[in-house]
Simulated assay, not measured.
Amino acid sequence: MSLSVGTALQDGWTTFQRTPWTFVFFALFAFVLSTVVDLLPGLAGIIVSALVDLWAAVGLIRGAWLGLNGERPSFGDLIKIDGPAVWRLFSRQFPLTLLLGVISTTAALLAITAADAGELAQSIYNQIPLIDPANTESIEGLIAEITTLAFAVTSSPVAMVILLIAAGLTIYIQVNQTFLGFLAVVKGLGPIATIQEGFRTVQGEWWAVLGLLVMQLGVILLGAFACGFGLLAAIPVVFCSTASAYRQLFGTDDQAGLLA
C-alpha cells in the first residue's frame, strides 16, 4: 500500500467537519483537566497527568476512527474510559520513549566529553536540584554556566557531529513510529511487535510520512497563531489525518476491538 498525503489531510479535515464542536469541546475539556491535575504535588501529579494525556489520546483516536467510518462521534464516545486501550498505548510508548531517551542521553554525554566540558556540566547538574527560584543571582549564575556549556559544545566540531547524528537518528525513528498510537490502540500488537511493525511498514513510505508530519506541523502552527484557541481544532484534525494515513498503510480492521 502507498500513502497519499493529500488524501490523508483531506480526510482529516472532512472527518473533523462532521462533528467539529464535539472534537473542539473534547480537546478543551482534556486541556482543562490536564491543567488541573498538573497542580497535584509530587509523583501523584506526574502519574495522573500522564493518565489524562493517554486517555485523551485514546479518545481522539476513537473519534477519528468513528468519523472515518462515516459516523458522527459523540462527546460520550470520546470521553469513554477504556482501561485496556490506555494500557496498550502506555506500554507501547514506554519502550520507544526509553530508546529515544538512551539515544539523547548518550549523545549529550559524548558531545560534552568531546567538548572537554565535563566539569562544567557536572557543576550545572549539581546546582539544578538546589536552585532557589527566589534567588535571582543563583539563577543568573546557572544561566551563565549553561550558556558557556552551550558555546563550548557548539564550538567543538566533533561534538556537533555527534549531536547531528543523534538528531538524524531520532528523526528517522520518530517518523517510522508515527503510527505507534494507532497500532497500539487499534491493532493491539505487543510492545516490541508494534515498534517492529512501524519500521517494517513505514520504511517504504518514509518520505511520504515525513511529508505528512511536516504538513501536520503546519496545521498545528496555524492553530497556535490563532491566539492558541485554534489548537482545539488543529489537534483533532491532525489525529484524524493520521488515522486516514494509518488506514491507507495498515488497513481498516479494528483488531483490538476499540469500538466494541
Rank of each mutant, 00 (worst) to 15 (best):
residue 207 W to Q: 10
residue 95 P to C: 06
residue 186 V to M: 03
residue 33 L to Q: 01
residue 168 G to C: 14
residue 178 T to M: 15
residue 122 Q to N: 03
residue 159 A to C: 01
residue 19 T to E: 09
residue 200 R to E: 12
residue 79 I to A: 09
residue 112 I to F: 08
residue 250 F to P: 01
residue 114 A to M: 15
residue 106 T to D: 03
residue 167 A to P: 09
residue 101 G to E: 02
residue 159 A to N: 00
residue 43 L to C: 07
residue 180 L to N: 13
residue 162 I to H: 05
residue 3 L to E: 00
residue 131 I to Q: 04
residue 99 L to S: 02
residue 252 T to L: 03
residue 165 I to A: 12
residue 246 Y to I: 11
residue 155 S to F: 06
residue 89 L to N: 02
residue 207 W to K: 02
residue 215 M to V: 14
residue 186 V to H: 08
residue 134 A to Q: 14
residue 109 L to S: 08
residue 98 L to H: 07
residue 196 Q to E: 13
residue 136 T to W: 07
residue 76 G to V: 12
residue 240 C to S: 15
residue 145 E to N: 05
residue 145 E to M: 13
residue 101 G to M: 06
residue 90 F to H: 01
residue 98 L to V: 09
residue 172 Y to P: 03
residue 154 T to E: 06
residue 30 A to F: 14
residue 3 L to G: 01
residue 188 G to R: 11
residue 208 A to W: 09
residue 133 P to W: 04
residue 93 Q to T: 11
residue 105 T to M: 12
residue 198 G to K: 08
residue 40 L to P: 03
residue 73 P to F: 12
residue 224 A to G: 01
residue 18 R to F: 08
residue 135 N to Y: 10
residue 154 T to Q: 10
residue 134 A to E: 10
residue 165 I to M: 13
residue 164 L to Y: 04
residue 36 V to N: 01
residue 61 I to K: 09
residue 194 T to E: 01
residue 134 A to T: 14
residue 194 T to F: 04
residue 53 D to I: 13
residue 155 S to K: 09
residue 237 V to H: 01
residue 76 G to M: 12
residue 142 L to N: 14
residue 25 F to K: 04
residue 232 L to V: 03
residue 109 L to V: 07
residue 3 L to H: 00
residue 130 L to M: 09
residue 183 L to S: 03
residue 122 Q to W: 12
residue 140 E to H: 15
residue 166 A to W: 03
residue 119 E to K: 11
residue 30 A to S: 15
residue 170 T to C: 05
residue 5 V to S: 10
residue 51 L to S: 05
residue 254 D to Q: 13
residue 191 P to D: 00
residue 196 Q to A: 07
residue 163 L to G: 08
residue 26 F to S: 04
residue 60 L to R: 05
residue 89 L to D: 04
residue 260 A to V: 06
residue 67 G to F: 00
residue 113 T to R: 07
residue 226 A to C: 15
residue 31 F to Y: 08
residue 147 T to W: 05
residue 51 L to M: 07
residue 244 S to Q: 05
residue 86 V to K: 04
residue 193 A to K: 15
residue 250 F to E: 00
residue 215 M to N: 06
residue 61 I to M: 14
residue 109 L to M: 11
residue 80 K to E: 12
residue 216 Q to P: 04
residue 151 F to Y: 03
residue 14 T to P: 01
residue 213 L to Q: 13
residue 237 V to D: 00
residue 96 L to G: 05
residue 164 L to F: 12
residue 148 T to H: 10
residue 24 V to Y: 08
residue 244 S to H: 02
residue 103 I to G: 10
residue 158 V to F: 02
residue 24 V to C: 01
residue 160 M to F: 02
residue 35 T to H: 11
residue 136 T to N: 10
residue 214 V to C: 02
